[in-house]
Amino acid sequence: MTARTDAVAANPVEAFLRSDRMPHIWCPGCGIGTTVNCFARALLQAKLNLDRVVVVSGIGCTGRVAGYLELDSFHTTHGRAIPFATGLKLANPELTVVVYSGDGDLVGIGGNHFIHAARRNVDLKVICVNNFTYGMTGGQVAPTTPLGALSTTTPYGCFEQPFNLPQLAESSGAVYVARWTSYHVRQLTHAFGEALRKKGFSFIEILSPCPTLYERRNRLGDGLEMMKYFKEQSLVRHGAPTKELGLTFQGPIAVGKFVDRERPTFLETLNQQLARTLEAQYAGCAGEHVRD
């Protein structure tokens, strides 16, 4: 009995966390931790060599994810997680490179890198926790803030059209596109697993509560209230055309896997092109010899 108790005494996600950094900085009711929890479980199930899994974050609340995971992890500059990850992946194609960041980081300041990495189909797993606002800086309007929502920089309501992220990802070239919320823990864990196995630019948008800066300002209650909204208003629409996935303030949410297709990755096309053109002069698969 004692042995069995010891075996179960550790939280299964603990092995993926830098426990010496807990408790983390995220607010009570913030959903980022839930997504990390699901991610850790997906890693557990994926049975990857964790020494070869790297997490790259940008700046912001979700940007702190890298620092809490017991993996090789890089907390880069604002918006630039994707190009950093691109360099990592190209110089060592054996790495599984996960970009884990927020909406403002990935599609606000980093939007240019997002579309180009998707276009090139760099083999990255891009996870975007979308809490509709810039949380770390105090709740400013984001490229994802729904029309009409209040933020500190749209005190009379947001008057900018938000991005439809699955549509942006698909039209830019992503091979895997899904959207879930931090309520959909089982589906999200499954989606992480699919993205980890998928070769090419994979994108998962996760809607997540920001109780402190988005919900409170918009009088939407706490994190739990937002989770209940996700539960009640989400409709699973696997394979739905991504142009139909735009979000409105507290409106219905389409969730599911929308895109799962095959396209050659950046390194595959690069190697194919160089091998064809240079023939014997090509010194080998790019990425394999780049390291010293």
Binding site: P83, G87, L90, H289
Partner: peptide, 26 residues
Amino acid sequence: PQVGGMFIQMEDELAASIAIQGAVWA
């Protein structure tokens, strides 16, 4: 490509100057 290396033309200089750092850490 003839000596086992590669060049990537990034989308801007911000990307180029951080992509090299990713490659360094790899």
